[in-house]
Structures are given as structure tokens and as C-alpha cells.
Design a protein around this nucleic acid. Structure first.
Length: 491
RNA sequence: CGGGGUGUAGCGCAGUUGGUAGCGUACCUGCUUUGGGAGCAGGUGGUCGCGUGUUCGAGUCACGCCACCCCGACCA
């Protein structure tokens, strides 16, 4: 494992790009840093969306939609927020093109300059709070529990497929509450929703915690996060939930009259996850043969491949395969029968492994004689000849086993690569040489945090909710520390 | 915005002192194959990133421009 990890670390980018492109997930478009999400990749995102949306609704939220364009002036209202996003905003300055007089194609019509520039949303706090201002007068109007599925644009200097693209898809929840306690409860509740989704559906173990002052969301009082470990030992932030305090209510002057007749600013939260989750799935579970998808999010659960020598055989196998397909589909599984004769069985095996289909069934002449099928599981690549009778329950059980197995595998990997360090040498060993998470004491200052980042590239991923609370000495400065925090190099 | 690279067939690349544009793969046709990415034979496909110059002659040399990639600051 160690060697494999090392080699991946060196070629991670190449490995990842090859995989994604070959896996028919995405390709670079002509637009800088944007991505085309191909149908199969989008199907994974749709499954993520569907499940999360269900969980949001179960916790009392409703969906709505706000504009893509935000007037520039909205951004200047919350100082920290503009500080955090100003450097990565795409700005619309004109609204018309015209034909160039000198025949040089189409040019911007300078006479069509906007009076006030529009920002393409990097996140929607400002436009949503500008709207909430008109919706909230009394405690009877609260809480507002709204979620939006949308695209956003952040003009980052460096982009990376799925992890950091210029335009990405996400959901953003924006809630307004009468009390501080209620808002904090909401923040925690949604962090839990994300954690449960990650662990139960993505088979991705996560560490819940709070961000430090320097890593928190621009404009938040506190930012909570779920952090997970990728196969190269780096950390990936999977989702965030922010307690915004009264910052945005103050900035947009959103007050309500309480039961006691007192006028006060409302309390806010926001929370989101993005298409980065698809990247997390790829990097957490895949192997050198391609993707390994958790059955609960896989666009195809089972692929059936015929093995035949002639047309008559294919006809018989197809008949058998179709009956199995119908049976499996009646159990709610998504099944694909690939009876194309333009590709050989071996080619198809490799193809569906690349795509991460959890279970493959192969049916050949021998199986017709014996009433069997060859069943292969993607996570371990094991093959087993099983009876065609009761194939539905055999497959269902295997899918459950795969879901469980890849979660356990990821958890064990994380545990094996998470080390409590007590000295600076140990810290550098774990972060710089081995690769992984380091639990270390920290003196609580931003200065120390910045120094460590400068020297090792490692950042404090979070101050975990669970974990040691014993006191100690900062691994860098030697000053007193209240507790250990989680350090890692992050994507 | 700094540092370093690369632009030649759909993709990945070679192209020597300047002399008719190549290889692998993919694609198309035919035959044989089909239980782990088949074999053989034949074939399609290129304004060598763009422009200017040097030369009898430029993928190759010179100058200018453009695009993309990697590393930093930034970041879900």
C-alpha cells in the first residue's frame, strides 16, 4: 500500500485526469477551468442531488431560486465577505455586442456599458439577504429554511477537474432564525446531514469539526466542516455549514419584532456541498482499474455481459439475461444488459470496471447448461459462479456488502495514516514524507498556523468535535495548547 | 501576476547538419475470432498554433504574437 501510495502521489494529477477522461466523466472544455460533465458523470451528481434533496426536505427545508447576477453594490455591504470573494469574481460590464466596423468580427459595444456592474454569483448570501429583508418583519415570519440548487462562478487562479473548476454546481442553504440558539442548532443539524450522507451513501468516513479563524468562511462567525482523507493522504473538505451570527442581517438591515415587541437582527446560517463530491468519490475509492462507486450512488448497479460464439447462442443468452434483468429491476436495481456484438467480452469487462459498476454478471454457454452466472464484484475484483436461482437476493446482498466494504476500507486507510504527533520532527515526517493526517497540539494563534503552512503546506483542517481534549504543548512553538487539532495538506 | 514547459492526424508522440509528413493507438473494410481490453491484410485521416522574415527550399533557423499545461499566491 505504501509503495502504491507513493507512486500515486507523484503522478496523482495524471492518474486522475486519465481516469476521469477515460471513464467518460468529464473533459476540459474550451472555457478556462470549466468542465463538461458527461452523461455518466452527471448521473452520479444527480444521484447525490436526489438523496441530499430528500434529506433537506426531511429536515424541513424547501427549494427556491435566486438570480445569477448580483449588483456590485450588494457585495460592499459585508466587509469580510467582500474581502474573501473580491479577488475571484467574474464581472459583467456590458450588455451588447456589435459587428466591428473594420470587419474584425464581433466586438463589445462600448455604448452598452452597464450603469452598475453585475457580479456573477460566487455564492448567494448577499442577494438572498437583500431579498429576506423584504420577507421578514416579525418572529411569525421565522424561521426561513430555504435551499437553492444552482451554479456559481469563482475565478480561481488554478483549477482542477471536479475539485476546483471556475464554474461549479452546488446547493446552498440559507436560513434565518429568531434566536442564536436556533441558528446554531440549524448549523449543526445540517453538518450532521452532510456527515450522514457522506458516510452512509458515499461510503466516505468524515471528521466533523470547526474551522480556525483563518480558514473560516468570509462573513461567518463559525464554519463547521466535514473533512475526509483521499488515497494519497491529502485532505478534502467535503461540505461546510456556517453559523453567520447577525453579520448578514446587520449588513442588509434585516430586523424582526419579537414576541416581546423588541426589534432585533435575525440570526443566519448557510451551508453547501458541490460537484467536488464527485471528485471525492473518485479519489477516495478508485483503484488502477478505474472508478469504484458505492452502490447507493452508482448510476448502474449491475451490468450483464453475454459470452457467445454465434447468433443462436446470443439469442438464448439474451433471453436468459433479459429475464434476470427484469427480476433485478423489480427489486429497484438499475441494470444494463450490454449485448453489443461490436465489442468483445474482455473489452466490456474492462470498460465497466473503469466506470465503477459495482456488480458484473457474465452469462455464457456453460452457464446456460448449468443454470449459473459468473458474478464479479468491483471493489475486490473477485469472481464467483453462482446459481441463477435467487440471483436477485444474491446480488442485493453483494451490493450491501460492497457498500459496507468500501466504507470500512476507507476508514481503515484513514486510521492507518492518521498519527498523533508530539514533536516537530514527527510532524514533518507525517505531513511531508509519509502523507496523512497529523493530530498535533497547537497554541491557538494564527501566526503559528501561518508559519506551519508556510514551512510544510499543511493547514489546520479542523478542530475536531471528537478526539482528545488533554492539554499539551504546541508542536511548533512549544507554547501551551488546550487540545490537539487536525493538520493535513489539503486539496 | 511571478518561475518552468509544450504546441505536428481524434488521442499519445517522433521528426538528426534545412531537402516530398512519420510511429503507436483510435477509426473504416474483409476474413478468422469471442470465459479478461483479439489476430492478419488492406485503407481513411495533417494549413506541422498564427504571422513576418532568411533561403532555390522551413515542421526544423530568426523575430513577433497566440493558446494550453505544470509549480507558487488563491480556493468548495
Amino acid at each position: 500500500m505504501a509503495k502504491e501510495l507513493t507512486s500515486r502521489k507523484e503522478n496523482y494529477s495524471q492518474w486522475y485526469n486519465d481516469l476521469v477522461i477515460k471513464a467518460d466523466l468529464a473533459e476540459n472544455s474550451a472555457v478556462r477551468g470549466c468542465m463538461v460533465i458527461k452523461p455518466y458523470g452527471y448521473a452520479i451528481w444527480e444521484n447525490i442531488q436526489q438523496q441530499l434533496d430528500k434529506m433537506f426536505k426531511e429536515t424541513g427545508h424547501v427549494n427556491a431560486y435566486f438570480p445569477l447576477f448580483i449588483p456590485k453594490s450588494f457585495f460592499s455591504k459585508e466587509a469580510e465577505h467582500v474581502e474573501g470573494f473580491a479577488k475571484e469574481c467574474a464581472v459583467v460590464t456590458h450588455y451588447r455586442l456589435k459587428n466591428d466596423e473594420h470587419g474584425k468580427g464581433v466586438v463589445v459595444d462600448e455604448t452598452a456599458k452597464l450603469e452598475e456592474e453585475l457580479i456573477i454569483r460566487p455564492t448567494s448570501e448577499t442577494i438572498i439577504w437583500n431579498t429576506y429583508k423584504n420577507w421578514i418583519q416579525s418572529y411569525r415570519d421565522l424561521p426561513i429554511l430555504i435551499n437553492q440548487w444552482a451554479n456559481v462562478v469563482r475565478w480561481e487562479m488554478r483549477t482542477r477537474l471536479f475539485l476546483r473548476t471556475t464554474e461549479f454546481l452546488w446547493q446552498e442553504g440559507h436560513t434565518a432564525h429568531a434566536t442564536k440558539e436556533e441558528a446554531i442548532e440549524e448549523t449543526m443539524k445540517m453538518l450532521d446531514v452532510y456527515a450522514i450522507f457522506a458516510e452512509n451513501f458515499m461510503a466516505l468516513p468524515v471528521i466533523k469539526g470547526v474551522k480556525t479563524e483563518s480558514e473560516k468562511f468570509a462573513g461567518a462567525v463559525d464554519t463547521y466542516t466535514i473533512e475526509s482523507m483521499m488515497q494519497d493522504g491529502k485532505a478534502l473538505q467535503g461540505g461546510t455549514s456556517h453559523f453567520l451570527g447577525q453579520n448578514f442581517a446587520r449588513a442588509f438591515d434585516v430586523k424582526y419584532l419579537s414576541r416581546e415587541g423588541k426589534l432585533d437582527y435575525v440570526w443566519a446560517t448557510s451551508w453547501g456541498v458541490t460537484t467536488r463530491l464527485v471528485g471525492a468519490l473518485i479519489m477516495a475509492h478508485s483503484d488502477d482499474n478505474g472508478l469504484i462507486l458505492p452502490p447507493k450512488l452508482a448510476p448502474i448497479h449491475v451490468v450483464i455481459i453475454p459470452i457467445h460464439r454465434n447468433e443462436e447462442q446470443l439469442a438464448l443468452i439474451t433471453e436468459k439475461a433479459e429475464s434476470i434483468r427484469k427480476l433485478l429491476e423489480s427489486k429497484g436495481l438499475k441494470v444494463k444488459y450490454d449485448g453489443r456484438d461490436t465489442h468483445k467480452p474482455g473489452w466490456k469487462f474492462a470498460e465497466y470496471e473503469l466506470k465503477g459498476v459495482p456488480v458484473r454478471l457474465a452469462i455464457g454457454p456453460r452457464d446456460l447448461e448449468n443454470n449459473t452466472v459468473e458474478m464479479a464484484r468491483r471493489d475486490t475484483l473477485e469472481k464467483l459462479v453462482v446459481s441463477a436461482d435467487g440471483i436477485d437476493s444474491t446480488v442485493t446482498q453483494l451490493l450491501d456488502a460492497i457498500q459496507e466494504n468500501i466504507y470500512t476500507r476507507a476508514l481503515k486507510f484513514r486510521e492507518a495514516n492518521t498519527i498523533k504527533v508530539n514533536t516537530w520532527d514527527e510532524f514533518r515526517e507525517v505531513i511531508g514524507v509519509k502523507g496523512g493526517f497529523a493530530y498535533a497540539h497547537w497554541d491557538g494563534t494564527s501566526e503559528t498556523e501561518a508559519r506551519i503552512k508556510e514551512e510544510t503546506m499543511a493547514t489546520i483542517r479542523c478542530i475536531p468535535f471528537n478526539g482528545d481534549t488533554e492539554e499539551g504543548q504546541c508542536v511548533y512553538s512549544g507554547k501551551p495548547s488546550k487540545r490537539r487539532v487536525l493538520f493535513a495538506i489539503a486539496y
